[in-house]
């Protein structure tokens, strides 16, 4: 707090010093309207300017001419200002400028298009190459698949052909019937815990391993 006061005092001193140097009393330059007439001017009667008839006529003529001439000059200047915005030549010039600017813009645009076209060509060529390789790989894969499938089928056919040697056909049906009749198979058997096959109607009788042929009749 004390410090603050000190600072304030210091500034106050400084201000006082500057005041003494710079401050000047400024009084109004003109008497305000609401103040009364100065006592010294109270009874003063201003003298009317005495202008002779010739002089007033001349002054009237001069001022009239001045006003008329100034008006026409002002009008001319206004016209020139207006034509500087809307004159035919000015408009033409603006149009030419715009045309040049348009051509410049189109040039820049064309350059950009050309650059982009080169990039696009490159990219499309790369993509085409990749696609071609993909298709080629797929084709090869398909070919291999086909080959494998064919091999499987071939195997099946081969096996089937081998089997077909034992097929019963119209030619060897009699032989097959004969053979079947000759060798009757009895499927009615039992199994004990040791896995021995017990054939026949007597289960207690251990099988001898020899098959006993029973007559159908």
């Amino acid at each position: 707090m004390q410090n603050l006061c000190k600072v304030e005092l210091l500034y106050g001193k400084l201000l006082c010093k500057t005041k003494a140097i710079n401050q000047q009393p400024v009084r109004y330059t003109r008497k305000p309207r609401w103040l009364p007439k100065a006592p010294t001017k109270m009874f003063r009667v201003p003298i009317r300017p005495q202008i002779s008839a010739d002089e007033s006529k001349e002054l009237f003529r001069l001022f009239t001419n001045y006003r008329t001439t100034m008006k026409s000059i002002q009008k001319q200047l206004e016209y020139e200002l207006e034509t500087s915005y809307t004159g035919q030549e000015v408009l033409q010039e603006i149009a030419n400028k715009e045309k040049i600017l348009w051509a410049k813009c189109m040039d820049i645009n064309d350059n950009w298009n050309a650059e982009v076209a080169i990039e696009r060509e490159q990219r499309l060529a790369n993509e085409r190459e990749v696609q071609r390789e993909d298709i080629l790989a797929q084709l090869i894969e398909k070919e291999e698949d086909k080959k494998k499938k064919l091999e499987v089928i071939e195997e099946i056919i081969r096996l089937e052909k081998e089997k077909s040697k034992t097929y019963i056909t119209a030619e060897n049906i009699d032989e097959a019937i004969e053979k079947a009749l000759d060798s009757v198979v009895d499927h009615k058997y039992a199994l004990d815990l040791a896995g021995n096959i017990l054939k026949g109607n007597e289960p207690n009788e251990p099988s001898t391993g020899t098959m006993r042929v029973q007559s159908i009749n």
Binding site: T68, T69, K71, S72, I73, K75, Q76, E80
Partner: peptide, 30 residues
């Protein structure tokens, strides 16, 4: 009174400088 007046000298010079028609006369409107 005359209907038109010559261009003021300075204005004439300015118009000549700007390559504009400087032979015109200003119309005096009553």
């Amino acid at each position: 009174v005359p209907g038109s007046i010559e261009l003021p000298p300075l204005m004439k010079l300015v118009l000549e400088r700007d390559n504009k028609d400087s032979n015109i006369k200003l119309q005096l409107k009553i």
